[in-house]
Nucleic acid binder design. Structure first.
Length: 471
RNA sequence: GGCCAGGUGGCAGAGUGGUUAUGCAGAGGACUGCAAAUCCUUCUAUGCCGGUUCGAUUCCGACCCUGGCCUCCA
């Protein structure tokens, strides 16, 4: 099936063509692990998951790499900037290494809750210091670097003619719009490749290097690790949209002189999760995590469903009103899928299966239009010409593609409703039915409350009643 | 100041040069003593002004407004 993706580099929707047939090399920028990942962060990983599942459904093997940034970086190139990792350590009175371990774990837990497939390689920046130094040495040999004494090794962006192409700006435009001081840098856009440790204080994370003790610049890790695990050239690189102008622009500047152009074939960028009054961010204080939603009683699939109702290139406004609406919509589908399980007679109709399979996969393959696929799913549920067995088989495919765990939740619901009621409850229900027939509704209602107190709901049906164990 | 995205019904959010998704909520109905579930039907919309066109929500231009990025950020 044709796959199309919006490529930030060309600003066009492009047909996807892999470098190697039937295989995709894919790198998604992961989180800095200094705190719990909030729902906005998780949106990125969920989008990456959908992209990967779509590729898998189209028969590709996917080598998926995601980094954990566990090195602290200064928020500015001045020494006054804060280091989030060190700050996290101070906040919790544990070491920087413990901060990293703790929040990698919580991130993995939340990703699992959202049924996000683990990356093929989840890699840590601190495990790849050697590779980063080697990359820097290559750049140095090629004449792209210079030292600011007492500060660090910097990349000279004026040496890279295509600098800024991803963000659609050239160097002179960037200079014109700049709002920041340059602190001895040759160009406003130059960035640190290696920072020296401060002389007056000891950092918890620092390493020896040919240039002196210090730590790598932030952008270096993604270049170094993607080359290691995906080779010099690979298919797709994605990340949050805020990375376009700086992080990814700098990654390209570091990588293309070494590996040649184009380093990456498709650049994909995710939009943000918003709150009514701005973006969801850790710095704004109030933010929600997946675990927070679970603690509040939400099925995490509800959040996944909410995100899939929108499009990755569009902001989504998060509120509990919209989450509740998504929760109801999600539950309604579960209800219908569970009902399909009541009558599984008949075989899977292969023609119909293929037809609907393609109808569902097509929009997702077209730049990940999951909202359209969800519409097709509604159509499928309503279509009376497709038998239950075929529908259930299709929901198996839908779960593989969208990861919404419909079959799992429906199976649980169906099992719960299939539990046989004990004899005494059945007798009460039978008595109630008779009371109803003789129009003694007062008796009927008191019998129902008695059944209720025994832990069962009695539901009237055309042919009598149905007993469902209460949750 | 520079760059980018977007303004769709009560809410969330799609698609589309002409028959205007889908979900949630609302209304009516079937069923029902009530309740739950299910099914059917149904009301609300395309920021403003021009232009192109037989016809624009969809294309073009101006305007207004909102949001994001440019500094660590998913």
């Amino acid at each position: 099936m044709q796959i199309r993706l919006y490529n930030t580099m060309t600003r066009k929707l492009e047909e996807f063509k892999p470098i190697t047939p039937n295989h995709v090399g894919y790198y998604n920028c992961g989180p800095t692990v200094y705190w719990d990942q909030h729902l906005g962060n998780m949106r990125t990983f969920l989008n990456a998951d959908i992209l990967k599942r779509m590729l898998l459904a189209n028969g590709y093997t996917v080598n998926h790499v995601m980094n954990y940034t566990d090195v602290g970086h200064l928020t500015s190139d001045e020494d006054t900037g804060e280091d989030k990792m060190e700050k996290g350590a101070a906040r919790e009175n544990i070491s920087v290494w413990e901060v990293a371990a703790k929040y990698i774990k919580s991130c993995e837990r939340d990703m699992a809750s959202l049924n996000i497939l683990p990356p093929t390689h989840a890699v840590r920046a601190t495990d790849h210091i050697k590779e980063q130094i080697e990359l820097l040495q290559k750049l140095e040999k090629m004449g792209f670097t210079y030292e600011i004494p007492g500060d660090g090794i910097y990349y000279d962006t004026s040496k890279f003619p295509d600098y800024g192409a991803l963000g659609g700006q050239n160097l002179s435009e960037l200079k014109a719009g700049a709002r920041i001081e340059n602190n001895g840098k040759r160009n406003i856009t130059d960035f640190a490749l290696w920072k020296f440790s401060p002389r007056d204080s000891k950092r918890q994370m620092e390493w020896d290097s040919p240039w002196g003790v210090g730590f790598p610049g932030w952008h270096l890790e993604c270049s170094a690790m993607s080359m290691k695990y995906l080779g010099d050239h690979f298919d797709i690189h994605s990340g949050g949209q805020e990375h376009i102008k700086v992080h990814h622009t700098n990654e390209i500047a570091q990588s293309e002189p070494i590996v040649g152009k184009p380093w990456v074939h498709y650049w994909v960028h995710w939009e943000w999760l918003m709150l009514k009054d701005g973006k969801m961010a850790k710095s704004s204080g109030s933010f929600w995590t997946v675990q927070g939603l679970i603690d509040k009683g939400y099925d995490p699939m509800t959040y996944r469903y909410l995100l899939l109702l929108g499009h990755y290139r569009q902001p989504i406004v998060f509120s509990f009103e919209s989450l509740d609406a998504a929760a109801t919509g999600y539950k309604n589908i579960i209800r219908k899928v569970a009902d399909l399980m009541n009558d599984k007679s008949g075989d899977t109709d292969q023609d119909l299966y293929q037809q609907w399979h393609d109808k569902i996969l097509a929009p997702v393959s077209d730049n990940l239009k999951t909202a359209e696929a969800l519409v097709v799913i509604q159509d499928l549920l309503k279509d009376k010409t497709v038998n239950n067995t075929t529908k259930l088989a299709l929901f198996g495919f839908i779960d593989d593609l969208l990861g919404l765990q419909f079959i799992d939740r429906a199976t649980k619901l169906h099992k719960l409703e299939s539990v046989e009621a004990p004899e005494n409850v059945k007798e009460l229900a039978q008595k109630r039915l008779e009371a109803k027939k003789s129009r003694d509704f007062a008796l009927a209602d008191s019998l129902r409350s008695e059944i209720d107190s025994l832990g069962w709901n009695v539901l009237d049906s055309v042919d009598g009643f149905k007993l469902v164990k209460k949750q």
